[in-house]
């Protein structure tokens, strides 16, 4: 079999890769590269699952890897890319609350916090491999970074990507901390796909940022279009 230490080294590298993709997602303005970066992240996740499978040889991990590859690395990115074509948005320039640099710094701080917190919480769990702990920290951090993407970007479509990256974080965390029954994992993925489908469909209706049409709301009087108020 393959050397455990080597696999662990690979896992470490992959984890760092994931963080790098997340950082890229936070800071990039180009939507198309955002989607492909998400796709890359998912692929990394799949690789991680495979690597873990090598370590633990649990069939569930393999199944997860397969499902994730199909759904997250192929179906969803493709779908989002199609939608993007439809609404003809290429860039998401505006940021809210956090500028890209701040978010990067902030996410580093967050990772530290998550590290402390998790080490505090997981002390009750019988000692696990240091690597697994590291994976859990990365998972939660990925979630929080995804959340930061959601709240700092204005376009709904970017928010969807943020959400997806959060979900990746959950998956990562789940893989490292424990192993859930496959049926659950599978259902979650199904659920996620529906969610993303719906959200992206809804965003089609919104060709501009959410803020913009707040200002224009009064134009959309439902009936009879009364006069506009100054």
């Amino acid at each position: 079999m393959i050397d455990t230490a080597l696999v662990q080294g690979i896992i470490r590298i992959l984890l760092v890769c994931i963080i790098i993709t997340a950082a890229y997602i936070i800071s990039t303005r180009n939507l198309l590269s955002l989607v492909s970066m998400y796709s890359l992240q998912s692929v990394t996740l799949v690789c991680l699952a495979l690597a873990l499978w090598v370590l633990e040889s649990s069939p569930v991990l393999l199944a997860i890897a397969a499902v994730s590859l199909v759904s997250k690395a192929i179906v969803i990115p493709y779908f989002i890319a199609t939608i993007q074509e439809k609404i003809r948005i290429r860039r998401d320039i505006e940021f809210h609350f956090l500028s890209p640099t701040t978010s990067l710094l902030f996410s580093m701080a967050l990772m530290l916090v998550v590290y402390t917190v998790l080490s505090h919480i997981l002390r009750d769990i019988p000692a696990r491999d240091n690597l697994f702990f590291f994976g859990a920290v990365i998972g939660i951090s990925l979630m929080l970074m995804g959340m930061m993407v959601m709240l700092s970007r204005k376009r709904a479509i970017t928010k969807v990507l943020g959400f997806l990256s959060m979900e990746n974080g959950v998956l990562l965390f789940g893989m490292f901390v424990t192993e859930l029954p496959f049926i659950i994992e599978f259902l979650i993925i199904i659920d996620l796909i529906i969610l993303v489908l719906l959200t992206t469909i809804l965003t089609v209706g919104i060709d501009s940022t959410l803020e913009d049409y707040h200002k224009r709301l009064h134009r959309f009087r439902l009936v009879g279009g009364t006069e506009e108020r100054p």
Binding site: H96, F97, L110, V113, V114, T116, V117, L118, H120, I121, L144, M147, M148, M150, L151, S152, K154, L210
Partner: peptide, 19 residues
């Protein structure tokens, strides 16, 4: 965005509380 910020802050606060 503001609403998500609230959620975010709360999550972090709860985490800090847990730690």
């Amino acid at each position: 965005d503001t609403y998500l910020l609230y959620v975010f802050i709360t999550v972090i606060a709860v985490m800090v509380f847990l730690g």
